[in-house]
Amino acid sequence: MKNTIKQLKEYLINHNIKPSTIRLKVLEYLLNNRIHPTADDIYKNLLPQIPTLSKTSIYNTMELFANNGVVKILSFDGKEAHYDVNTELHGHFKCRRCGIIYDFNVPFDIPIPNELKEFDVKEVDINFYGICHKCNKQRGQEM
């Protein structure tokens, strides 16, 4: 997915974020690498392009993006945060063997359980854990 600098700037401005070189590069990376990266992944991949980049800049950018609806923060097993640029309702499957996180579609009409009818639900997370199809194939070939 190729986005122009103008499109990236407009996207950030529409989310009340002042565009900067780092923010534009991070957004471009997220849109082109929908792999649910960690801050460290983003840092390592952008460092060759921005030699003065710091991890603090990445963490600050990701916090700003999360607070303004550009990314959703994913936490699996209470471990390192992953970032998802797809903020629409969808689920995730995390492979316990290889660690890859897969997206899957969910119906948009998920009913709120009766026990929560009087609650103000702001967000829904649907996470599954197990062994992915690739790891299952590898395991079958090892036997």
Rank of each mutant, 00 (worst) to 15 (best):
I42W: 06
V70S: 01
H82I: 02
V70A: 00
E115Q: 03
Y29G: 00
P107V: 14
K94D: 02
L46C: 13
Q7F: 00
L30Q: 01
S75F: 04
I42T: 09
G140R: 04
S20F: 07
F93D: 06
L116Q: 02
P51E: 00
R34A: 08
E123C: 08
R139V: 12
E10S: 07
L27H: 04
L27I: 02
N32C: 05
I5C: 05
P37I: 06
D40F: 15
E118R: 13
S57I: 14
D41W: 06
V71M: 04
Q141Y: 05
F65T: 07
T52N: 07
E80F: 03
P107L: 13
E63D: 13
C132Q: 10
V85D: 15
P107G: 10
I22W: 06
L30P: 01
K44D: 11
L46Y: 09
M143R: 11
I101Y: 13
R34T: 10
E123S: 06
H82V: 01
T38D: 03
Q141S: 08
M1R: 05
G130P: 11
I112L: 13
I112Y: 09
V85L: 11
R139K: 12
Q141W: 14
S20A: 13
N32I: 00
A81V: 14
S75Q: 10
G69Y: 07
M143A: 14
L47Y: 09
G78P: 03
G78W: 02
T38G: 03
N33I: 00
G130N: 08
T38W: 13
E118D: 14
Y11W: 03
Q7T: 01
E63C: 07
V106K: 10
E10H: 07
I110E: 03
N105R: 12
K18A: 10
K79T: 15
V26W: 00
D103W: 08
V70R: 02
C135I: 03
Y29F: 14
V26K: 00
V106Q: 10
K94F: 12
D103M: 08
F104N: 03
L31N: 05
K6M: 09
N14A: 01
L46P: 14
N68K: 10
I58M: 11
K134T: 15
Y83R: 01
I58T: 03
F119S: 13
C132H: 08
R97C: 15
I58S: 05
Y59E: 15
K9L: 02
E142Y: 10
G78Y: 10
H36P: 05
V70K: 02
D41F: 04
P48W: 03
T52F: 09
K137G: 06
R97P: 05
V70M: 00
E115D: 01
Q138E: 12
I73P: 15
M62D: 06
P19Q: 05
L30E: 01
I101P: 05
F119L: 07
P48T: 01
I126P: 15
G140I: 12
T87A: 09
L64P: 07
M62P: 06
G69C: 10
G69H: 08
H82S: 03
K72W: 02
N68I: 08
T38C: 05
Y29E: 04
I35P: 01
A81R: 08
P111I: 01
C98E: 01
F119D: 02
I100Q: 14
Q138V: 08
C95T: 04
L30F: 01
K55Y: 14
N16L: 07
L53R: 02
C135N: 09
E63L: 12
